[in-house]
Computed example of a mutant assay.
Amino acid sequence: MLERKQLKGRTQITFVLPQDIPEGPVSVVGDFNHWNPAAHPMEPRGDGARAASVTLPAHSTHSFRYLAAGDYWFDEEDADGHDGTNSRVHA
């Protein structure tokens, strides 16, 4: 799931996954963090989900995927689009 918060000239995107699906650590990787798995690890939040947030320029579009333990890559079902390999988000 993607959550958005509009800021002045920017958009905060929060990537949200259930606590244990998939099991183990998960990171959000994309063109906004140079596909670096260490840049945005998902952290637990009070509602039982886990999340990671990035702030992007307003009106921009970015590619991303999730990377879980065991080199398991997967897409966001509720993404704004897909470009074949990656999920897409519009800030």
Rank of each mutant, 00 (worst) to 15 (best):
68 A>I: 04
35 W>C: 00
72 Y>Q: 10
57 P>N: 12
51 A>C: 10
65 R>A: 15
54 V>F: 13
23 E>M: 08
67 L>M: 07
20 D>W: 14
29 V>A: 12
11 T>N: 05
46 G>C: 11
68 A>Y: 05
83 D>W: 01
22 P>A: 04
76 E>K: 09
25 P>S: 13
17 L>C: 02
88 R>A: 03
60 S>I: 01
20 D>N: 10
19 Q>L: 13
48 G>S: 10
62 H>W: 15
24 G>R: 03
55 T>W: 08
73 W>C: 06
7 L>Y: 06
68 A>R: 03
31 D>N: 09
58 A>L: 12
15 F>A: 00
2 L>P: 06
36 N>W: 01
38 A>G: 06
56 L>F: 04
81 G>K: 09
40 H>M: 07
83 D>M: 02
52 A>C: 10
21 I>W: 12
90 H>Y: 12
59 H>R: 15
75 D>C: 11
11 T>Y: 02
56 L>S: 03
84 G>I: 05
18 P>V: 07
48 G>I: 08
51 A>E: 14
3 E>H: 13
46 G>Q: 15
82 H>C: 09
27 S>I: 01
60 S>E: 04
34 H>F: 12
64 F>P: 03
72 Y>P: 06
39 A>I: 00
15 F>I: 00
6 Q>R: 11
11 T>M: 06
89 V>P: 03
59 H>N: 15
33 N>M: 07
89 V>R: 03
77 E>T: 10
61 T>A: 11
7 L>P: 05
32 F>D: 09
90 H>D: 13
31 D>F: 01
66 Y>E: 04
70 G>V: 01
63 S>M: 09
7 L>F: 07
1 M>L: 11
63 S>K: 14
46 G>R: 15
47 D>I: 05
43 E>I: 11
49 A>Y: 15
51 A>V: 12
23 E>I: 06
57 P>H: 08
23 E>T: 10
38 A>M: 10
2 L>W: 04
49 A>I: 10
71 D>V: 08
85 T>W: 09
57 P>V: 08
58 A>W: 09
35 W>H: 01
84 G>Y: 02
53 S>Y: 13
22 P>K: 03
28 V>E: 06
87 S>P: 05
62 H>F: 07
82 H>G: 14
11 T>G: 02
88 R>C: 05
6 Q>G: 07
58 A>R: 15
64 F>I: 05
14 T>W: 02
74 F>L: 06
73 W>D: 08
58 A>K: 15
5 K>D: 11
35 W>A: 01
60 S>T: 14
52 A>F: 12
70 G>H: 04
61 T>C: 12
72 Y>G: 07
57 P>A: 11
66 Y>P: 04
60 S>L: 02
61 T>D: 10
82 H>I: 08
13 I>Y: 00
35 W>E: 01
21 I>N: 11
70 G>R: 04
88 R>L: 15
37 P>I: 00
60 S>F: 03
83 D>I: 01
56 L>R: 03
16 V>G: 05
53 S>I: 07
47 D>F: 09
66 Y>K: 02
83 D>Q: 03
1 M>Q: 12
48 G>A: 12
37 P>L: 00
34 H>Q: 12
67 L>Q: 11
10 R>V: 05
